[in-house]
Amino acid sequence: MASHHHHPESEIALRVKAIESLLVEKGIVDPATLDTIIETYEHKVGPHIGAQIVAKAWVDPDFKARLLDDGTGAIAELGLTGFSSEHMVVVENTPEVHNLIVCTLCSCYPWAILGLPPTWYKSFAYRSRVVIEPRKVLQEFGLEIPEHVEVRVWDSNADLRYLVLPERPAETAGMSEADLASLITRNAMIGTAKVPAPTSLNPPVAQEISP
């Protein structure tokens, strides 16, 4: 689209601005409330919360048993529940089973545990393909699942939200809970990646694997 601006804002950004100013003007939306919500999801809530839960499950077998039996209750013990994570189911990856999360109807996702969903999670391509050809989609994420492993796709179409408990890498024996948490990526908790083994003596940094 032609524009005479040096830094033209996208059409969607302009539309959001227009709607926001109308809602504020009519007294339907308080800008301070909007800022609070944005601040929360930009800086406070994110995959580090899920990583904390997974690391605890790796070092505490009793907690892990409770987490798999009643995700909502076990996560509430840690005080980590919140909006869009009210009813949690935790599914465990093992050498025999690989779990993968999707919402085919929209983009339901455990916000309080993993933050806002990544763009690809909301895409039509991921949502429609992952139920039909999960192994092919996982290959595109760089993950080859052996034929004998059962792939379970969980469609979070109702009000339950899902978290994958990834496998703990064998090379992590003796690591502290905090160091373990730093290894655990967002994608590993959706099921589109495995948790990588620590590769160097430097403290590992949680990073997202593309796409």
Binding site: R135, E150, R152, A158
Partner: peptide, 9 residues
């Protein structure tokens, strides 16, 4: 794959 499954609520 005959091993795979879909879970839905």
């Amino acid at each position: 794959s005959p091993n795979d499954a879909l879970y839905i609520d």
